[in-house]
Nucleic acid binder design. Structure first.
Length: 182
DNA sequence: CCCTGATTCGC
DNA sequence: GCGAATCAGG
Protein backbone atom coordinates (compact mmCIF):
# COMPACT_ATOMS: atom_id res chain seq x y z
CA UNK A 1 0.00 0.00 0.00
CA UNK A 2 1.07 3.49 -0.46
CA UNK A 3 3.17 4.65 2.36
CA UNK A 4 1.63 7.45 4.24
CA UNK A 5 3.91 10.38 3.99
CA UNK A 6 5.26 9.44 0.62
CA UNK A 7 5.10 12.21 -1.90
CA UNK A 8 3.07 10.69 -4.66
CA UNK A 9 2.02 12.53 -7.76
CA UNK A 10 -1.40 13.09 -6.30
CA UNK A 11 -0.04 14.48 -3.10
CA UNK A 12 2.44 16.68 -4.89
CA UNK A 13 -0.29 17.82 -7.21
CA UNK A 14 -2.52 18.73 -4.33
CA UNK A 15 0.40 20.37 -2.63
CA UNK A 16 1.06 22.59 -5.61
CA UNK A 17 -2.59 23.36 -6.02
CA UNK A 18 -3.05 24.30 -2.40
CA UNK A 19 0.18 26.25 -2.34
CA UNK A 20 -0.77 28.07 -5.49
CA UNK A 21 -4.17 28.68 -4.03
CA UNK A 22 -2.52 30.56 -1.26
CA UNK A 23 -2.99 28.05 1.48
CA UNK A 24 -0.57 28.03 4.33
CA UNK A 25 1.97 25.31 4.78
CA UNK A 26 0.34 24.20 7.99
CA UNK A 27 -3.04 24.14 6.32
CA UNK A 28 -1.72 22.10 3.45
CA UNK A 29 0.03 19.82 5.86
CA UNK A 30 -3.18 19.38 7.78
CA UNK A 31 -5.12 18.75 4.61
CA UNK A 32 -2.62 16.23 3.38
CA UNK A 33 -2.35 14.55 6.68
CA UNK A 34 0.51 12.54 8.10
CA UNK A 35 2.80 15.34 7.14
CA UNK A 36 4.12 18.26 9.06
CA UNK A 37 4.24 21.75 7.76
CA UNK A 38 7.98 21.42 7.62
CA UNK A 39 7.65 18.48 5.30
CA UNK A 40 5.29 20.45 3.10
CA UNK A 41 7.56 23.45 3.05
CA UNK A 42 10.55 21.26 2.42
CA UNK A 43 8.86 19.62 -0.53
CA UNK A 44 7.67 22.96 -1.80
CA UNK A 45 11.17 24.26 -1.77
CA UNK A 46 12.52 21.12 -3.30
CA UNK A 47 10.02 21.33 -6.09
CA UNK A 48 11.26 24.79 -6.73
CA UNK A 49 7.95 26.55 -6.45
CA UNK A 50 9.03 28.35 -3.36
CA UNK A 51 10.01 31.94 -3.24
CA UNK A 52 6.46 33.10 -3.51
CA UNK A 53 7.07 35.91 -1.11
CA UNK A 54 10.41 36.76 -2.46
CA UNK A 55 11.81 39.76 -4.10
CA UNK A 56 13.85 38.89 -7.16
CA UNK A 57 14.68 42.46 -7.79
CA UNK A 58 17.10 42.99 -4.99
CA UNK A 59 20.04 40.75 -4.54
CA UNK A 60 19.06 38.54 -1.71
CA UNK A 61 21.64 39.05 0.95
CA UNK A 62 22.12 35.60 2.26
CA UNK A 63 24.60 35.71 5.06
CA UNK A 64 25.43 32.20 6.09
CA UNK A 65 23.18 31.61 8.99
CA UNK A 66 25.12 29.47 11.38
CA UNK A 67 22.17 27.35 12.28
CA UNK A 68 23.65 25.83 15.31
CA UNK A 69 22.35 22.32 15.38
CA UNK A 70 23.37 20.46 18.50
CA UNK A 71 23.77 16.79 17.57
CA UNK A 72 22.17 15.60 20.70
CA UNK A 73 19.03 17.03 22.14
CA UNK A 74 18.68 16.53 25.81
CA UNK A 75 15.04 17.43 25.52
CA UNK A 76 14.64 17.22 29.24
CA UNK A 77 11.86 19.74 29.22
CA UNK A 78 8.62 18.23 30.40
CA UNK A 79 5.29 19.24 29.02
CA UNK A 80 5.28 22.94 29.47
CA UNK A 81 2.18 24.05 31.27
CA UNK A 82 -0.60 25.17 29.07
CA UNK A 83 -1.30 22.84 26.21
CA UNK A 84 0.04 19.45 25.48
CA UNK A 85 -0.29 19.93 21.77
CA UNK A 86 2.89 20.63 19.97
CA UNK A 87 1.39 23.01 17.54
CA UNK A 88 3.61 25.71 16.35
CA UNK A 89 6.70 26.22 14.34
CA UNK A 90 7.96 22.95 15.63
CA UNK A 91 7.09 19.64 14.17
CA UNK A 92 3.47 18.85 14.46
CA UNK A 93 2.23 15.45 13.59
CA UNK A 94 -1.47 15.54 12.80
CA UNK A 95 -2.09 11.86 12.58
CA UNK A 96 -5.80 12.36 12.32
CA UNK A 97 -7.20 15.14 10.28
CA UNK A 98 -10.93 14.74 9.98
CA UNK A 99 -11.69 16.93 7.06
CA UNK A 100 -15.41 16.75 7.47
CA UNK A 101 -17.33 19.28 5.53
CA UNK A 102 -19.21 20.26 8.65
CA UNK A 103 -18.90 19.59 12.31
CA UNK A 104 -16.19 17.24 13.35
CA UNK A 105 -17.52 13.80 13.82
CA UNK A 106 -16.94 13.82 17.50
CA UNK A 107 -18.20 10.62 18.93
CA UNK A 108 -19.29 10.33 22.47
CA UNK A 109 -16.05 9.23 23.83
CA UNK A 110 -16.69 8.18 27.40
CA UNK A 111 -13.06 8.45 28.28
CA UNK A 112 -13.47 7.10 31.77
CA UNK A 113 -9.79 6.74 32.36
CA UNK A 114 -9.07 9.82 30.36
CA UNK A 115 -9.25 12.78 32.60
CA UNK A 116 -10.23 15.82 30.70
CA UNK A 117 -8.63 18.53 32.66
CA UNK A 118 -9.06 22.05 31.51
CA UNK A 119 -6.53 24.63 32.50
CA UNK A 120 -8.92 26.63 34.56
CA UNK A 121 -5.97 28.33 36.06
CA UNK A 122 -5.75 30.12 32.79
CA UNK A 123 -9.02 31.85 33.39
CA UNK A 124 -8.77 35.36 32.24
CA UNK A 125 -10.96 38.37 32.03
CA UNK A 126 -11.86 40.36 28.98
CA UNK A 127 -8.78 42.38 29.65
CA UNK A 128 -6.43 39.48 29.48
CA UNK A 129 -8.38 37.82 26.75
CA UNK A 130 -6.50 37.50 23.51
CA UNK A 131 -7.58 36.61 20.04
CA UNK A 132 -6.02 33.21 20.32
CA UNK A 133 -7.63 32.61 23.68
CA UNK A 134 -10.65 30.45 24.21
CA UNK A 135 -13.75 32.53 24.84
CA UNK A 136 -15.89 30.37 26.97
CA UNK A 137 -18.37 32.19 29.20
CA UNK A 138 -17.98 31.09 32.77
CA UNK A 139 -20.47 32.13 35.37
CA UNK A 140 -22.94 34.90 34.93
CA UNK A 141 -22.10 37.78 32.67
CA UNK A 142 -23.56 40.03 35.32
CA UNK A 143 -21.11 38.79 37.85
CA UNK A 144 -17.93 40.73 38.37
CA UNK A 145 -16.13 37.46 38.49
CA UNK A 146 -17.16 36.62 34.98
CA UNK A 147 -14.16 35.09 33.29
CA UNK A 148 -13.25 33.23 30.17
CA UNK A 149 -11.52 29.94 29.69
CA UNK A 150 -8.50 31.64 28.25
CA UNK A 151 -7.24 28.42 26.77
CA UNK A 152 -5.48 28.19 23.49
CA UNK A 153 -8.17 28.50 20.86
CA UNK A 154 -7.50 26.67 17.66
CA UNK A 155 -6.92 28.49 14.44
CA UNK A 156 -10.23 29.74 13.18
CA UNK A 157 -11.98 28.69 16.33
CA UNK A 158 -13.17 30.90 19.11
CA UNK A 159 -12.89 28.08 21.58
CA UNK A 160 -10.23 25.68 22.64
CA UNK A 161 -10.26 22.05 21.68
CA UNK A 162 -12.19 20.98 24.70
CA UNK A 163 -14.81 23.71 24.61
CA UNK A 164 -14.96 23.57 20.85
CA UNK A 165 -16.15 20.02 21.13
CA UNK A 166 -18.86 21.08 23.50
CA UNK A 167 -19.86 24.01 21.38
CA UNK A 168 -19.94 21.78 18.40
CA UNK A 169 -22.13 19.10 19.85
CA UNK A 170 -23.21 16.95 16.97
CA UNK A 171 -26.93 17.39 16.52
CA UNK A 172 -27.25 13.92 15.22
CA UNK A 173 -24.69 11.25 15.23
CA UNK A 174 -24.20 10.42 11.65
CA UNK A 175 -22.03 7.45 12.28
CA UNK A 176 -24.41 5.23 10.36
CA UNK A 177 -22.61 3.11 7.90
CA UNK A 178 -19.10 3.16 6.64
CA UNK A 179 -19.07 4.14 3.03
CA UNK A 180 -16.29 2.47 1.21
CA UNK A 181 -14.92 4.45 -1.62
CA UNK A 182 -14.31 2.29 -4.64
C1' DC B 1 1.25 34.97 22.81
C1' DC B 2 0.90 32.56 18.01
C1' DC B 3 1.80 31.63 13.18
C1' DT B 4 4.26 32.43 8.77
C1' DG B 5 7.83 30.97 5.38
C1' DA B 6 12.92 30.14 4.59
C1' DT B 7 17.00 27.84 5.49
C1' DT B 8 20.31 24.17 6.82
C1' DC B 9 21.69 19.63 8.14
C1' DG B 10 21.24 14.66 9.37
C1' DC B 11 19.28 10.46 7.90
C1' DG C 1 14.95 13.07 -1.44
C1' DC C 2 12.75 13.61 2.88
C1' DG C 3 12.00 15.48 7.27
C1' DA C 4 13.23 17.69 11.47
C1' DA C 5 15.35 21.45 13.65
C1' DT C 6 16.28 26.32 13.72
C1' DC C 7 16.05 31.29 12.40
C1' DA C 8 13.90 35.38 11.49
C1' DG C 9 9.93 38.10 10.66
C1' DG C 10 4.82 39.28 10.97
Amino acid sequence: MSEAGAWTDERVELLKKLWNDGLSASQIAGELGNVTRNAVIGKVHRLGLSGRAKNPGSAAPRPRKPATRPPAHPMASPAAGGGGMTRGNTALAPQFVPEIEAEPEAEHVPAPAEEVVIPFSERVTIMDLREYMCRWPMGDPTSPEFRFCGGRSLTGMPYCGYHARIAYQPATDRRRDRKVRA
